[in-house]
């Protein structure tokens, strides 16, 4: 039971990151690797601000803002200066690594005993204590999902979705697809950094290395969610990303708890995650090939 609750808590907090990855990879079709840098950016900025006495809520919002700005940089690099998308993301990610060290002044910043936006919300909610953190995390994730769904139904949001599918058309109808890429990446990485900020508060520390593999974990969540829900609208797709995130975190907790018996160590997790993503990417191709051979 406790395992399930923890999986859901983490699933929702990391789910914000999965929503961000959904926006860049699925909506914009932009392979944005900078999330590996913006996730710890959110964590380290929020942690430093909280340590220096900021309210955890203000610190989390500032972290989201910083993520948005950082990745407007990736977007500008790629759309205005024609740096390849992958490379632009990697450059931002590397720059953020150094920047995150500067922000914290050291590689790891503990937050034990400091105020946290997650636990503050949990205490405020009229819910028994065993479930309160889960409720707070769920509240954040579902609120973000609903806001996103609404945004994607506005004129601007619709144009952003169109820019991913057919940028020439967007231009023909009077919007600059480059601005749409920048805007989309800003929203995406704002969410990723917010996720980093909340995860740091939830787990009680920020670490420069906590971002390694974020993109793969996010993709795994998005893909797993899609495989289960097969979403046909944006609202279902964002829901699928959250569902995928919860399942993914659950799988990780199970692997950590019981994997030892099978000879796994926590350091094997990244390999396993990558294999899951790989399997999901390869499966449709293999299935297509098999079908063609049958026919």
């Amino acid at each position: 039971m406790a395992l399930l609750v923890h999986a859901l808590e983490q699933g929702f907090l990391y789910g914000l990151m999965a929503l961000g990855v959904y926006i860049s990879f699925r909506v914009l079709r932009f392979p944005d690797l900078s999330v590996d840098g913006t996730f710890p950016l959110g964590a380290s900025l929020a942690a430093s601000l909280i340590v220096s006495g900021w309210s955890p809520f203000a610190a989390s919002i500032a972290a989201a803002g910083a993520g948005a700005v950082a990745c407007a940089f990736t977007g500008t690099l790629s759309s205005r200066f024609r740096v390849q998308g992958l490379l632009a993301g990697v450059l931002t990610m590397i720059m953020l690594y150094s920047l995150n060290l500067r922000i914290m002044g050291r590689p790891n910043l503990p937050l034990l005993g400091r105020p946290s936006a997650v636990s503050a919300t949990a205490n405020w909610l009229p819910i028994p204590s065993g479930w309160a953190v889960l409720a707070a995390a769920g509240l954040a994730a579902v609120a973000a999902k609903l806001l996103l769904d609404l945004f994607f139904r506005t004129e601007l949001g619709l144009t952003l979705r169109a820019a991913g599918g057919n940028p020439r058309l967007v231009q023909a109808y009077g919007a600059d697809p480059k601005n749409m890429v920048v805007l989309g990446l800003a929203v995406s990485n704002g969410l990723v950094a917010l996720s980093g900020a909340l995860v740091a508060q939830y787990s009680g520390f920020a670490d420069v290395n906590m971002g390694v593999g974020t993109i793969v974990a996010g993709l795994a969540a998005v893909i797993v969610g899609e495989m289960i829900l097969r979403p046909r609208s944006v609202a279902w797709a964002t829901g699928a990303a959250l569902l995928g995130s919860c399942l993914y975190r659950g799988a990780i907790l199970v692997a950590l708890r019981y994997g030892g018996a099978l000879g796994f160590t926590p350091s094997d997790l990244k390999l396993l995650t990558a294999l899951v993503v790989l399997a999901a990417l390869v499966a449709p191709v293999v299935r297509g090939k098999l079908k063609r051979e049958e026919a």
């Binding site: 139904r153 506005t154 004129e155 601007l156 949001g157 619709l158 144009t159 169109a162 109808y173 919007a175």
Partner: peptide, 14 residues
């Protein structure tokens, strides 16, 4: 909805 507006896009529902 995308085609019926040709200028700046805002946050109105499409």
């Amino acid at each position: 909805a995308l085609a019926c507006k040709k200028g700046r896009r805002g946050l109105r529902f499409a």
